[in-house]
Design a protein around this nucleic acid. Sequence first.
DNA 1: CGGAAGAATATGAAATTGCATATTTCTCCC
DNA 2: GGGAGAAATATGCAATTTCATATTCTTCCG
Lengths: 171, 171
Amino acid sequence: MNTIVKKESGIEVSGNAGFVGEYLLYLLASASDVASAAFHAQVRARGLRVPEWRILACLIDTDGQMVTELAQLSLFEQSRLTKIVDQMAIKGLVKRRSDDRDRRRVRVHLTPEGRRLGEELVEAARRHERTIVEQMRPGEAALLKQALKRIHALCEGAAPAGATEPGEPTS
Amino acid sequence: MNTIVKKESGIEVSGNAGFVGEYLLYLLASASDVASAAFHAQVRARGLRVPEWRILACLIDTDGQMVTELAQLSLFEQSRLTKIVDQMAIKGLVKRRSDDRDRRRVRVHLTPEGRRLGEELVEAARRHERTIVEQMRPGEAALLKQALKRIHALCEGAAPAGATEPGEPTS
DNA sequence: CGGAAGAATATGAAATTGCATATTTCTCCC
DNA sequence: GGGAGAAATATGCAATTTCATATTCTTCCG
């Protein structure tokens, strides 16, 4: 089943021999990486960095999110998001507006410019996704997405293995 | 099917409304992130940084890889890998040895210490993976892995969208 | 052989990232 | 009303990461 390739040096460099080739977390990271590479090139070709694209996409979905929400959705740590938003504001892609109800909150809004670019890229992303999905078996992509969502649901709240429970002695 | 949650502000913050919640690349990145989080905590608890763990795991699979091979397998850019290996060498986890056949090449070997720690963590990784897989439907994890491998196979060589073919006029 | 071209790795400087903490605003309870 | 404490965001600095390029070695060909 496993294709073992011997190199001149006698070292196996098969695609799936050994541990990592069957390790779920590796397969996830690796698929994510390689699948994104081509599209990320398109993003950069339009003068955006990848993190900026991620923010745009999230804002296209729902504009005016608060920094914390946006950070969670876009998978960035809060202080990092703040800095990305800084840059995007300078580029004129987004605008900060403080929430009237709660002035601690800062809501991030797309500018017309940001929305245009965002929508353009979302279309490109859809096309790119389609080229991948079309190459898979019928229904395989849907199953994949479903499984990925389940992973997400299972893991999101999971205690960081070995974490002490509240009230548990730490000494 | 989609659970739409309205917040005080009237903004949807559902888990899957809109574009990103159904976007393959997002689901991949997001599942990868959240699934790894708990295990990464275990890694750090043993005094390792995550990149170092990734290298250890790759070397456990096949010791003595050259820097370039290792970089590709571990999903790090070459110059970055060099620096991670520097640190690991200082910590006494790996040792560089230059290849006799081709003295440009540097092969990275585990020290006994590195192997011990690596094997320990591979076991922990297996246990962690098991806890995830067990929570999924029977067979779902296997399908997921297969789909991830297919993604990888489909995308690995893919021309970075808009790239010029060799021999194509660039002007 | 000699030297040009290419490969493999390392290095330096600039940019990004993460972590701890400061700052501002809100909530709650007395 | 007036703190104490929590929440939301920003900031500063150290560490990591990237990008371009230097260095070392090998291969190929005249």
